[in-house]
Design a protein around this nucleic acid. Structure first.
Length: 916
DNA sequence: GATCCGACAATCC
DNA sequence: GGATTGTCGGATC
């Protein structure tokens, strides 16, 4: 990667502090890492690469810069440049116009405008980051201070690590504690908690340059910070230590070893101290700091930190909205406002997977803001001149975090947040609590959230006063069933108790279960988490939700499926939901994202496990169709390390080597090939003799490769299949006849999952499901809107893609009844769809079913088929998907009830488990 | 013997 | 490089 962001910020600060009109653009280019040679030649005016004329500077694909006299309309100038021929011809990204008082810039790719005064320009450094090769943000905060601070701390950490042995966990813990204490001191000396620069200048003037006594300095400093102002021990300390105040709050309480410093580390320490730490944001800085320090997280800088907008999706419906509504109701009523203040001082916020404390910090700040509004309102309502102080304490905030460093950062960040809010309070009301000594810290425990009793961390039963409330929130980790460690698997087993149900659930569902148990029967306790959307889709639903609903807990609000977003460069690729839990009755809030990307809110009686309003139905998977005698199967899975599969070239090579091979090669379709009209082949060696195989050395070599791949596998099933390496690991391919082919995963943009009618000369891989023995009638029904609506409702998803499954979609689908005449009608219309597809031989199914490209005649043919299939269910047309689903769900329930009546179930149905 | 999933993974412009 | 869109095989019953 190019130049570091911290360097850009520093250079920009210099370039903008007192801009020299002749030099500014060159400093600017230098800041963003343009080569020195380019800059020198531009300055000398002899560069043929300057595409601009006059005094302007223009660099192909990069920027176009123009300076104008003061008083010029910068926006108009920028707009005309933007539209100019020279800019479009040279594919310019940024247009910049300035009179050295203000600056207007336009990013032509992102179509964003920047208007700023010159002395604020450095704060907008991120706008121009694409010039340095950072497309969008790597991970930047709105405040450059966070980026600089975390990078510097990361470097300091590296230097400390070089000198100090960190092999034992207690060493690492000691360093974690040291770094958070150091961070506090940096912050303190820039924000008036200490005297300005007090610590840094003491280091500079009293420690030796080789850094050898820096550790002793910190030992003494931390001792004095833990001594009360009047403590006699202070007398024996050196004078410059005695000037430091008593901090308390537990931050400097324990004696922890201090790492040794060298010359370089000491210098960097002083550099850090000379930075301005007053502007760092505890909410984002915590995650960044953690990401820089934590070995594991360095590779995926902040992939999983929760953005403020996502945190707000959790805490607004969870408690903030209610509290603000209370304020609105109480505006004129002094007594009620005082009650609200009291309520704010008695509620508890608990994040049982708190990381470096994002949720707690945002929640804290938001509650303090609300409290300020309440106090402001009280001041206008009441006649007395009472002085209201903030009553919200950090001890109302609880957290559990498994990572030691993150948990230290969380504690510290809460203090910093408290201090910042105190300053905001002082600014508004002119008075505030004293900065020091620090009050109680948040109750952040380092431990495993799934093993600790939450009641002990946040004991609502004992400390609970009347009307006190607990709000649980957070973003616990997601881990699918085949990506967990055995420890994590054990934790889930202990938690879920019974034999199997936990194995297919995501790790995050553990937090849902624990929260539900904690909530059960308590009307003043609510929880809300971010979770992977898969806990509300497909197979997980019947395992998880009946247990939660069985505890009397329901979904009080939800944000349905949306793509994970944050500012990290490698942000995690996952779709998420936000789910609120509680026992209260009343309307539920359901937030849905429209196709245009706009959130809308709906009030509904109940929200079901699929995060849809209304019907509380849960669809169980089944191994046989509910009312159909034709079964759907998996396609054939090679499990071959690629050795039985052939690209067209490989196929041709094999056959030209030995024409006999042609007998053993069949075309194979994955979903990719089926949907996009690509070609792929496979060795289908069913029935080949040893002798025949020996005649084909290249084929035999491939077969032997399959054997070793399967032997090397961790899966016992694959090991077993090494005995028959010439065969597919799982082969369902019919020897003769036709079959229907349904791709297992396909794009959610399509109105219909494209289904094919194939014959047995073509193999289908396990990327598809197949229905042998099915005909055009079955094709017609499965292709209908009716069936696709069912699929959309009950199928699992890959992120947001459709994931068709036999057990969840096909086997649960209630087929319509049809007499001969009706069957014939469907067959005709289905045939029409198949024929129309053939009218476009050069368009793949992927194109034919792209909503933007779907040919009108094909669309019409589908519509006609849709109507005919609907008619099999009822004469009156359905209004919309909701009505179709209501009908299908009713039919489903009826069929399930009939089935139960016929043969009383031996086993309990999957979902219903006692929660004892 | 069957089948679901992936804080994904590969491909396509 | 970001938008699009479906592989592959382990793990589990």
């Amino acid at each position: 990667m190019a130049i570091s962001q911290a360097r850009i910020i520093e250079s920009m600060e210099q370039a903008c502090s007192n801009p020299n009109p002749d030099e500014f653009i060159f400093s600017f280019l230098d800041a963003y890492g343009f080569p020195k040679s380019t800059i020198t030649r531009l300055r000398n005016g002899d560069d043929s690469r300057n595409v601009a004329s006059g005094n302007d500077i223009g660099l192909k694909k990069k920027l176009y810069f123009r300076s104008v006299p003061e008083g010029t309309d910068l926006n108009a100038e920028a707009d005309s440049l933007k539209a100019s021929e020279v800019v479009s011809r040279n594919d310019i990204r940024f247009v910049i116009v300035t009179d050295f008082k203000s600056l207007v810039a336009f990013d032509l790719k992102a179509e964003e405008r920047l208007e700023t005064s010159m002395d604020e320009l450095d704060k907008q450094y991120a706008f121009f980051l694409p010039l340095a090769g950072y497309e969008k943000a790597v991970m930047y905060s709105e405040h450059p201070a966070d980026v600089k601070a975390s990078e510097k701390m990361g470097r300091l950490f590296d230097l400390i690590r070089e000198r100090n042995d960190l092999s034992k966990p207690e060493d690492i813990h000691a360093l974690n504690v040291f770094l958070t204490r150091l961070l506090f001191c940096f912050y303190a000396e820039d924000t008036g908690i200490f005297d300005q620069g007090q610590m840094t200048s003491a280091i500079q003037s009293t420690t030796s340059e080789d850094g050898s006594d820096v550790d002793q300095f910190f030992t003494d400093l931390f001792t004095v910070l833990n001594l009360e102002d009047k403590a006699p021990e202070r007398e024996s300390m050196a004078a410059h230590f005695q000037k430091f105040p008593y901090v308390n709050g537990g931050l400097f309480e324990k004696d922890e070893p201090i790492p040794e410093f060298g010359r370089k580390a000491r210098r960097l320490l002083i550099d850090c101290g000379n930075m301005d730490w007053s502007e760092i944001n505890p909410d984002i800085f915590g995650s960044m700091f953690q990401a820089v320090i934590d070995e594991e997280q360095r590779g995926n800088l902040g992939q999983h930190y929760t953005s403020v907008s996502n945190i707000m999706k959790v805490i607004q419906p969870l408690f903030l909205d209610k509290l603000y509504a209370e304020l609105e109701k109480s505006r004129e009523n002094e007594r009620k406002l005082k009650e609200l203040l009291l309520r704010l001082q008695n509620l508890h916020i608990f994040d049982p997977a708190c990381g470096s404390g994002n949720f707690l910090i945002i929640a804290y700040k938001e509650l303090r803001k609300l409290e300020m509004e309440v106090i402001d309102t009280l001041n206008t309502v009441s006649d007395q001149t009472e002085m209201y102080y903030s009553g919200i304490k950090l001890s109302q905030f609880y957290g559990i975090e498994i990572d030691d460093f993150a948990h230290e950062v969380a504690i510290l960040s809460l203090w910093l947040a408290e201090h910042q809010m105190n300053m905001a309070f002082k600014e508004k009301f002119g008075y505030a609590d004293a900065d020091l000594p620090l009050r109680d810290s948040g109750n952040i425990i380092c431990g495993n959230s799934l093993k600790i009793d939450w009641q002990e961390v946040c004991p609502f039963l004992c400390s609970r006063k009347i009307d006190s409330e607990v709000y649980i929130c957070g973003n616990p980790p997601f881990l699918g069933y085949n990506s967990r460690s055995s420890e994590q698997q054990d934790e889930m087993r202990l938690l879920f108790g019974d034999k199997q149900s936990y194995k297919k659930l995501d790790y995050v569902s553990s937090w849902f279960l624990l929260a539900s148990k904690y909530i059960a029967n308590n009307e003043s306790i609510f929880a809300a988490f971010v979770a992977t959307s898969s806990i509300c889709q497909g197979m997980q639903v019947p395992f998880l939700w009946p247990r939660i609903f069985g505890l009397g807990v329901n979904i009080s609000f939800a944000y349905s499926n949306f793509a994970w977003e944050n500012a990290a460069r490698n942000k995690a690729a996952v779709n998420v939901v936000v789910i609120g839990l509680g026992v209260s009755k009343g309307k539920k809030r359901l937030f849905c994202l429209s196709k245009e990307g706009v959130w809308s809110e709906e009030l509904t009686e109940s929200i079901n496990a699929y995060l849809v309003g209304g019907s509380s139905i849960i669809v169980n998977n089944r191994s046989k169709p509910i009312n159909k005698n034709i079964e759907m199967q998996y396609g054939s899975m090679p499990n071959d390390g690629g050795n039985l599969l052939l690209s067209p070239t490989e196929k041709n090579d094999l056959i030209s080597e030995d024409p006999e091979t042609a007998h053993w090669v069949k075309p194979i379709l994955g979903a990719q090939e089926f949907l996009n009209g690509k070609k792929r082949y496979c060795l289908w060696l069913k029935g080949i003799t040893e002798e025949e195989l020996n005649q084909l050395p290249s084929v035999k070599a491939r077969v032997e490769n399959v054997r070793s791949v399967r032997l090397a596998s961790k899966s016992p099933g694959a090991n077993k299949a090494a005995a028959t390496p010439h065969l597919f690991w799982f082969a369902s391919h019919p020897d003769k006849g036709t079959y229907l082919l349904v791709p297992k995963v396909s794009s959610e943009r399509r109105p219909y999952v494209p289904i094919g009618l194939l014959d047995s000369s073509t193999v289908s891989s396990d990327a598809n499901l197949i229905v042998p023995n099915a005909g055009v009638f079955e094709f017609g029904v499965l292709t209908s809107e009716m069936h696709n609506d069912w699929m959309r409702a009950v199928a699992g998803r890959l992120e947001s893609r459709y994931r068709y499954s036999a057990t969840l979609v096909y086997n649960t689908f209630p087929w319509p009844e049809a007499n001969d005449q009706q069957r014939k009608k469907i067959e005709e219309l289905a045939e029409e769809v198949l024929l129309l597809r053939e009218d476009y031989p050069d368009k793949s199914l992927s194109k034919l079913y792209d909503p933007k490209e779907m040919p009108e005649p094909l669309r019409e043919a589908h519509k006609a088929l849709d109507r005919a299939v609907e008619k099999l269910y009822r004469e009156k047309p359905f209004r919309d998907a909701t009505e179709r689903l209501e009908h299908l769900f009713a039919l489903y329930e009826k069929l399930i009830a009939e089935e139960k009546a016929k043969k009383p179930a031996k086993k309990q149905p999957k979902g219903v488990i006692d929660n004892g």
